[in-house]
Write a protein that binds this DNA or RNA. Sequence first.
DNA 1: GTGAAAGCGCTAACAG
DNA 2: CTGTTAGCGCTTTCAC
Lengths: 341, 341
Amino acid sequence: MPGIHEVAQLAGVSTATVSRALSGNGHVSPATRTAVLMAAEELGYVVSSNASSLATGKTKNVGVVIPFLNRWFFSAVLEGAETALLSHGYDLTLYNLGGGAEQRQSVFEHFLLRKRLDAVIAISLELTPTELTGLLNINKPIVGVGGPLRGVRTLSIDDVEVAQLATEHLLSLGHRMIAHIGGTKDYELDFHLPTNRRVGYEGALEAVGISVDPRLFQAADFTIQGGYTAAKQLLGNPRNRPTAVFAASDEMAIGTILAARDMGLSVPGDISVIGIDDHELSEFFGLSTVAQFPALQGRLAVEILMDQLHPTSRSQGSLNTALPYELIVRSSTARPNPRRR
Amino acid sequence: MPGIHEVAQLAGVSTATVSRALSGNGHVSPATRTAVLMAAEELGYVVSSNASSLATGKTKNVGVVIPFLNRWFFSAVLEGAETALLSHGYDLTLYNLGGGAEQRQSVFEHFLLRKRLDAVIAISLELTPTELTGLLNINKPIVGVGGPLRGVRTLSIDDVEVAQLATEHLLSLGHRMIAHIGGTKDYELDFHLPTNRRVGYEGALEAVGISVDPRLFQAADFTIQGGYTAAKQLLGNPRNRPTAVFAASDEMAIGTILAARDMGLSVPGDISVIGIDDHELSEFFGLSTVAQFPALQGRLAVEILMDQLHPTSRSQGSLNTALPYELIVRSSTARPNPRRR
DNA sequence: GTGAAAGCGCTAACAG
DNA sequence: CTGTTAGCGCTTTCAC
């Protein structure tokens, strides 16, 4: 484990020069620079990030706080952020909140405060006021993805708009009885998006003069299983069966497709289904959906942080761009079967 | 951002005493200890982990290297490791290798060497000799999960045994034409387990005098889609259709169930299906499987590291325990339909 | 039991 | 362009 001192000796210069040559801060003559580089290479020298951090106050490390690891959306955002951070030379320290209340508490009360982080990315997190002020107090850049954090720069698709688009797609095909599978109340705590998506759905219906039928709403937990169960309720009702289902996530939409199949209903013959996400399984199931691009969202969050950490000339420009989304029509949506109209 | 100095002043002691009181190293009178604790609390003092690391050489941080984030097994191991690390006061720095060759290279050549880590956990990784020696050179504890790393303590289920058990389950139900969906050659690079599972499958067959029919093997990529495609090949063959399929992962087994449904075959009436994993969707699909417990594996990996980082009395004891697995019989396996026997 | 002081390995003025 | 010299904030001998 050679230190900067050994490198300096080998290269015949001072440690200061080594530091400058290696970090690129300050001027060093090309000759000495290569000498230093060679010496470092020969010794296999790597800076101690601790010593460096202590001296500079920068850690080259950002924390990512995330509620789950095993959900498609989260892992995709995480992956995007990770790749982007790596390419900027940053480490990613992961804080998963899935482990219960005490784990969550210790993350906010201890881990995030250790002065080990240059910035924080919060993914789909609804924070308590205490947690939020705690975070803001450490006075580091922080950006949210997919969840609304008051007082924090947050990246997220326009959920109302997206839900409206999905619903309009069904309407334009001629559907009039469109059910919605959305989130439960307590899910709301961490995500907040269920309401927005429901609002978009209802807005689209009302815009064409269809009044919202509460019997056509089912709550579920954003999983395939949850969607399956909810869909069975909806589709099993002989009196009030919808011709189309708009699920607030692709996973629930896939559950809906599976439920329809199990009930002998054909998709899209008897029932059209659309979701939101463009989940990795959606193409496989021929699911129409409104794609969002979580990896991109992760990457964007990192770019924003980098902009704040290393302010450059043309900053701020790209920062407020709305996140892209895109209607993808596959085989799960079609015009309603005229026999049942 | 109060420092240790402010705390010392407030408590009316020296910084050395504060350090001792807070870390628990060295003796401090109960009275001064509480004084220090209160002062620290009042100021909201948190140690700078960088300064602390620099002084002690310990970082309270372990790196986790992982090939993917968006696969059930990996995220489950990661989650287990994360929770365990947090409870020991350790941070988890994530290195995802999914971003291509240069990303992989920079992880091994720069990031892991930054002296920022006390230890490394490698999940399902097959390392090149260069990568491995690089890792071993940093001379920190390293443990592998689910992949064979020569020269490194590795946790993994006995894949041969597990595959054999799954196959024996099918045999004991009376199946004789048992197909296998396993990994492709190049998948082998990072995982190695496909071969072992195939060996277990073949071993079980041969043990009861059934010779292995290469036409009953299909390679796939461990995804639902891959399993679906492979299963269609297997089940679509009118001349040589198996009565049961053993898939090397639950995701491929689920793909098989979906393929069977699409072909009008009933599971388990026409075809029995078994996988390995106990994936989160397996119960939903009624899939029989051999469960492994990835979160536990992550946790165990952490315990082993902790044992090496803080050697205690009764170490080494629990270290070499074999990882548990368990046959879970659900509704996707049954005795073969006598009509087709 | 507690304080003084010497670093941990690096960076950033400040001179030259 | 390069060397000297203070620290960054904490831990840890070594005395008292």
